[in-house]
Amino acid sequence: MNSTTTFKPAQTELSPEQELARLRWQCRRGMLELDMFLESFLEKSFLQLTATEKTAFYTLLNYPDQFLLEYLMGRSVPLDKDVAHVAKKIQAAAGP
């Protein structure tokens, strides 16, 4: 059930601002909890991420919603350690 890609690749070359706008739309998910996790993290923390962390963030966005929820709620840990690290960061940033 996790074989389906959920990421629509950009068709054109995007500027950094456009890429951020695209990511903002990728953070719109099917569950309120994911919207809360991702939208605030993108606004507050994405630009401060290292290149490796940014790549891991893209990987996370590619997961189906239920798996993403599992990772961000800390119920399970992604196998890729870079992705696991970013998932933890997102989780830590989700508070009030």
């Binding site: 959920t6 990421f7 719109r28 099917g30 919603d65």
Partner: peptide, 12 residues
Amino acid sequence: SKVFPTRSHTVA
């Protein structure tokens, strides 16, 4: 669909 189909609210 305004979001990728498997991100629709049915998942919730």
